[in-house]
Design a protein around this nucleic acid. Structure first.
Lengths: 400, 400
DNA sequence: GGAATATAATACACTCAGTAAAGAATGTCG
DNA sequence: CGACATTCTTTACTGAGTGTATTATATTCC
């Protein structure tokens, strides 16, 4: 396994380029002097680097804001509309593709239902076609394609390693299957990590280095950012908390374990809890979306069931927070759509079960990004990795 | 907050120096060519760097092993006995100090009982005196002092932030208190992280990048290595799993939560379980050490109690493993001293409660380092951080 | 207005970490 | 011995970052 690799002259330059681009994107600096301060590099160096970025068309100079004294600094802005990011997503229910600009604005978006019975080969072809169509409508050069996968994957082989509901997918090389339709590098990422990245780049937590992104719909998973970088763990299973037991005497799960979090905190759990509580076992249990509508509408039984299930989700997340001590936790996906009751319940549980010192320092929030945050995050994942070698990404595409 | 800082020429050089030293220490390369391959740097560069290290006295050339053809390579060895590491530890029960060489061999060791009633100021003075005495007996230059602390601390202020059994300690600046008695930089680290570092540098897991080090005695905690670096989390509380609830209907804990792991998996829990099971509630419950002796001796009641408590510990760790997906888990401290029964029990629980893909890739082991692994780890913590700027550490001390 | 001052950005010579290329050193093999 | 093969060093070179002086542009104060 390749350990850390040495810093040759190339790595030095690329690293500093990346650093400057990231600082500009995050709004951590808007002038050359500020960049020098933020990076620790000297002004002369920043001048050189910025000139490079301006040459590529990635950065523009604007009239800077007023200064109390001295020469007014030139403002620097990342041009969001000159390079574009491709994004794709495979889900239990659908496949989707999009093109984003560097500000995270979706410019093209397409979605299609997934046909699980089609088999992996055919589904991958369908996704490739969808992606090809979408990226063809991009208004400019697409520098990379990110793919949000519904579960852990093997980064070396480009294959999903485990995912109920995706039989046969372990046999297809997703990265390879998409490389043909795109004239840019393709990057795979777990969708929960995509969500975390989207939050880190475009959400309310851009300054945080340690972020926990909890996804809860039919399953429960988490994306992890540690020290500003995605954390995958040894084999890509970091954050797979859905099958962590929160009750060792609980009911049997399909995974063979007992009392898994998914049995207590998921859309299915919500349906079961609601059906049982409302005693309406006569008819079919309403869908999770319907129950969530009733929660927002104020129906007492729905709210009770929701409170209970969300409380159990929060209880499961307590263990994660104690393990990771993140700066912030963001919840996302369908289960958060119960209105203000969600955060109320979660914060109540966290307050009771976390150590006070940890709870006080913790920021808890719900996804507020418009659109599909994990699809956006797929684009971010591509950008994040492209910034390991910025010149490779922007120089070529910039010459137009 | 200082984000990533730019790579100036200095950082480049120091980074590559560090990389070479780490590669040599880990035995990942023993010749210049191997170093070039391992780091990605060119041979000419390695020649320069190695010359520097030889000048400092850190590296020696040996007669290399035979080669099938061509010139025989010169072997390179890290001189373990030219620079030395100071280590200190504060614990519930004792304070300790030691001097290690770079091979992790203890050369000087002193220990003293802690007097909790003395107050923080006096205890710190006692520790400082102990450290001073110990380091004075070092056979050569001590390049840094690492201090293993019994709980989370604030790296900025040098203060313990929370620790039951350490009243008043939040008010004293430990780093400052020790800086006076040592003519070298002082570094603080959580003792669980120290253990993890010791395992990473001198244990059986030197090639692993993600390591989980579980410490269990009167309390339960964990040290985390992510991507080869210690992971602290947002405020140093990462790995504090002792007060994670594994049973939301469990008994009340002193922390205010219910069913905390510490109530089920600790030396106190072992005593309680054993006392209850053996029905010997008439007399005093035997000490944990005594029970562990009986476990090794084969007493059925002791083994039953031990199995149960260790099983609960493992159950608590399952959540951590699912969250982090480490390459390996190492258990340490008093609770592992039950002989082969420990690993048997732990592996049984992990096998049942982890996802098969995660369990299969996971290495589980028990601390086998001689002596006090966390005291050794304190020294490693110092070394690890000194290697952020190797020239600062070795150049000065090398001129003798 | 004009001088003094302050801040931003650039120009230019310079430093030195890393490198390409050639050569020296040291081994095996026929 | 000479023909390889491999390791290590030397030399001249490249170029990223930098110190310093200079230029550009603002405010302030007389």
């Amino acid at each position: 396994m390749q350990y850390d690799s040495g810093i040759n002259r190339d790595a030095q330059k690329e690293g500093n380029l990346s650093l400057v681009i990231r600082a500009l994107h995050a709004g951590r600096a808007e002038t050359r002097v500020a960049l020098a301060r933020a990076t620790g590099l000297k002004q002369a160096t920043i001048t050189k680097i910025v000139r490079q970025l301006v040459d590529w068309g990635l950065v523009s100079e604007t009239t800077g804001r007023e200064a109390p004294m001295g020469r007014r600094p030139m403002g620097l802005t990342l041009n969001a509309d000159r390079f574009f990011l491709g994004a794709a997503r495979i889900n239990r229910n659908y496949i989707a593709a999009a093109v984003y600009d560097l500000a995270g604005t979706p410019l093209v978006f397409e979605q299609a239902d997934r046909c699980p019975e089609d088999g992996a080969e055919a589904s991958l072809s369908a996704l490739a076609a969808l992606v090809g169509r979408t990226l063809a409508r991009a208004p400019g050069p697409v520098i990379g394609l990110g793919v949000a996968l519904p579960g852990p994957f093997n980064a070396r082989t480009g294959r999903i390693t485990l995912m109920s509901g995706f039989p046969g997918w372990a046999a297809v090389d997703i990265q390879k299957g998409l490389r043909g339709v795109v004239d840019a590098p393709v990057f795979l990422e777990h969708d929960a990590n995509c969500g975390a990245l989207a939050e880190l780049w475009y959400g309310e937590h851009r300054r945080d280095e340690n972020l926990l992104y909890v996804v809860c719909d039919r399953g429960v998973g988490a994306g992890l950012i540690a020290g500003g970088r995605v954390y995958h763990g040894a084999s890509g299973y970091a954050g797979e908390i859905g099958h962590t037991s929160i009750n060792f005497a609980g009911p049997l799960c399909e995974c063979g374990n007992r009392g898994c979090l998914e049995l207590y905190a998921s859309s299915e759990a919500l349906r079961a809890t609601y059906a049982q509580a409302s005693l309406s076992a006569g008819g079919d249990a309403p869908s999770a979306s319907e129950i969530l509508r009733r929660v927002r509408g104020g129906e007492a039984a729905a709210r009770d069931a929701y409170r209970r299930v969300v409380g159990q989700l929060a209880f499961g997340v307590v263990g994660l927070i104690n393990a990771l001590n993140p700066d912030c936790v963001v919840f996302a996906d369908r289960m958060v759509e119960g209105g203000e009751l969600f955060l109320e319940t979660v914060e109540g549980v966290l307050c009771r079960h976390l150590m006070p010192e940890v709870y006080r320092a913790l920021k808890v929030s719900v996804n507020r990004l418009p659109g599909d945050p994990m699809l956006l995050g797929a684009g971010v994942a591509a950008l994040d990795r492209l910034l390991d070698r910025p010149s490779g990404a922007f120089r070529r595409a910039g010459v137009s």
